[in-house]
Design a protein around this nucleic acid. Structure first.
Length: 600
RNA sequence: GGGCGCGUAGCCUAGCCUGGAUAGGGCACCGGGUUCCUAACCCGGCGGUCGAGGGUUCAAAUCCCUCCGCGCCCGCCA
């Protein structure tokens, strides 16, 4: 026994591994020193494999060091392992194949992990501290009609990211940027400004007979949109009318109907998102930046910007040849020949407003906005704003036949339709299992299962992966799915309920939990703080989905392997483990925005 | 043509940032499991050498280069 390991962990740490890693690092440094190596602690930490390996909890490869010692890696690892100082938190240190494998004391790990999970409760896995304020902008879909599931990928990624960042200790404000100034919104106002009998025939034909009294407002007011879009392609005169309307809106002279229609459609869209647990802190109207003069200020600043150029016809642009933009279109136009602003210009005003309030910004964008993001970066540079948003770019959801989901092409899968189908299937599943339940409970559970399945299905895949939409995959309630996690949570709740121990405290004796499945479950619970921190740092929201599945999977194995309520001396401790699992699963579901179910 | 992303078993997917020990899961398929805490579950089996080729390295799914395939973008639209 040597002197105590220096306390490297901060007292505020809520990560179980912080009780072990500093001691392991210290032990390795000592053992390496004895063998003639002086390694900087941070270099050693970088080499550590904290996910362990097949042989232990933490692995340290010595391949890099071996040549310096003129020893085979295998031999060096053995020597280092031999010199590892004994420690109360370390059970064993063994060398194998060039790795030094450190196994921590299981009882200690159980002790620390369960204590943290049970005392931290809803905050287990979360970090304390209030970081600088951050704004997460997501969804921001044009208010032109119902969501299709391609668009909803943005909302699910954005909302989940906001939840994860909050858990990581960042004060997050979510914003929905409403584009009420473009041609899309003008097309809606254009058609509804005409009396119905004045509508062009193809547009009327597309709407007639489709309407129902109980249509949601997004469906009702957005219904003519695809037909209008198609009609405008063929009719320059109508296009001219819409263009006039756009200019009118840009001058701040929009018909009163304009804002009302956008708001009505938006309300319908938001109702669908609300079913998925998605809401927003703030809504920001694009037109606001024109009305309050900030767009004019941006235009003025850009015209005096270092690389501003006046085009021959009176338009203004930034010579972006020095920027990370395509070479054949080196100029970013920010002011039209008629003096009006463009989308990207107004987006500069919006981002300056955000930067004035928030330390950092996150924009969740579809991959088709990649170039826009770079143009925006260039313009921010030109107006002297040194900060940049963090862009989270996701790929499209496509249809099996190939191609993107298109509202106009009729290939879109509507979010509402998907949710209804999911609800129908979930209802059948609940009834098949729980015919004893009152109808209201069946409905509540079915809704939670349906929305949980859809949300999990979208978030489980890395944002940068293209996704092909398939009904049977989206509606899966088994395996790597939302309902599987929900089920595991309900099962844990059920055990506690049956044991009449659903409220704490949960006393336990770590020495009683000796089954490999118990330790395996504890290990996965102990991972949560690191997973949350990683997910927040990298915007890999799907890591939480994978983690939730891992916890559920481990819990079910444990559940089948050992009895809880019917056990003897272990009962109390196993109940505590179930309670800690339930907490971890519940916290993970919260991060995913998937509803917890106490029974299902 | 240029830019960005993707390419892992029949299908879907993790790992790629920070190279490291037999590449984790799920679906499907085959075989088991319910007098017992919720079978939306569990156990076993089957199946991949990570698009192709080259390079760097003691070590490459991971880093670099070339090529192939798929998607998207390259508007005084948003």
């Amino acid at each position: 026994m040597v002197e105590a390991a220096p306390s490297v962990s901060s007292p505020a740490s809520h990560d179980p591994w912080d009780s072990f890693v500093p001691g392991i690092v210290y032990g390795l440094l000592r053992a390496l020193a004895v063998n003639g190596f002086s390694i900087a602690p941070q270099d050693l930490v970088r080499q550590l494999d904290l996910d362990g390996g097949p042989e232990g909890d933490v692995a340290y490869p010595v391949f890099r060091l071996a040549p310096m010692a003129k020893l085979p890696a295998e031999e060096l690892a053995t020597r280092v392992a031999e010199k590892f100082p004994s420690s109360p938190t370390v059970k064993s240190v063994r060398a194998k194949g060039g790795y030094v494998n450190v196994t921590v004391d299981p009882a200690r790990l159980i002790e620390v992990t369960l204590t943290l999970a049970l005392t931290r409760g809803p905050r287990y896995g979360h970090a304390d501290g209030d970081g600088p304020p951050v704004c997460v902008e997501h969804t921001s879909a044009n208010p032109t009609g119902p969501f299709h599931i391609g668009r909803v990928r943005n909302a699910i990624i954005g909302d989940t990211l906001a939840r994860i960042r909050r858990a990581a200790g960042q004060p997050v404000t979510t914003q929905y940027y409403i584009d009420d100034m473009g041609r899309q919104a003008a097309m809606i106002t254009w058609i509804w400004s005409k009396p119905r009998d004045a509508w062009p025939e193809p547009i009327r034909a597309a709407v007639d007979g489709e309407e129902r009294p109980d249509d949601k407002p997004d469906l009702r007011w957005g219904r003519p949109y695809p037909a209008v879009s198609a009609y405008l392609k063929e009719h320059p005169d109508a296009r001219e009318e819409v263009a006039k309307l756009v200019h009118q809106i840009e001058r701040g002279d929009a018909p009163p109907r304009h804002r009302e229609l956008a708001q009505a459609i938006l309300d319908g869209m938001l109702a669908s998102l609300a079913r998925l647990g998605i809401g927003f802190d703030e809504f920001v109207w694009e037109s606001g930046f024109v009305r309050d003069g900030s767009v004019d200020k941006v235009l003025e600043r850009l015209r005096k910007a270092p690389h501003a150029v006046a085009e021959s016809n009176g338009a203004w642009a930034i010579d972006a040849s020095g920027y990370d933009l395509p070479k054949d279109s080196a100029n970013v136009i920010f002011q039209r020949a008629d003096g009006t602003s463009l989308y990207v210009t107004r987006d500069v005003a919006y981002h300056l407003a955000k930067f004035a309030r928030f330390a950092s910004l996150v924009d969740v964008l579809g991959q088709d906005h990649q170039l826009h993001a770079r143009s925006l970066n260039a313009l921010l540079q030109e107006v002297g704003e040194p900060r940049r948003p963090t862009y989270v770019i996701y790929q499209d959801i496509t249809i099996p036949e190939g191609g993107r989901m298109s509202t106009r092409g009729g290939s879109a899968v509507w979010l509402d339709a998907l949710l209804e189908e999911a609800l129908e299937r979930a209802r059948r599943e609940v009834i098949a299992r729980r015919e004893d339940l009152p109808v209201s409970d069946i409905e509540r559970i079915a809704e939670a299962v349906a929305t949980g399945a859809v949300r999990y299905h979208i978030v489980r895949v890395a944002p940068e992966k293209p996704v092909v939409f398939r009904w049977e995959d989206a509606l899966s309630f088994e395996g790597r799915s939302g309902p599987f996690v929900q089920y595991s949570y309900a099962r844990a709740s059920s055990v506690l309920r049956k044991g009449e121990v659903d409220s704490g405290p949960f006393p336990f004796d770590a020495g009683r939990l000796t089954d490999p499945e118990e330790l395996g479950l504890v290990r996965v619970i102990a991972r949560m703080p690191r997973v949350v921190a990683y997910s927040a740092r990298t915007s890999h929201v799907h890591a939480i989905a994978g983690y939730a599945h891992d916890v559920a999977d481990r819990f079910n194995r444990f559940y089948h392997a050992v009895p809880v309520l019917r056990s003897g001396a272990e009962r109390e401790s196993r109940v505590a483990l179930v309670a800690a699992t339930r907490q971890t699963l519940g916290n993970s579901l919260d991060l995913l925005g998937v509803a917890r179910l106490e029974t299902m």
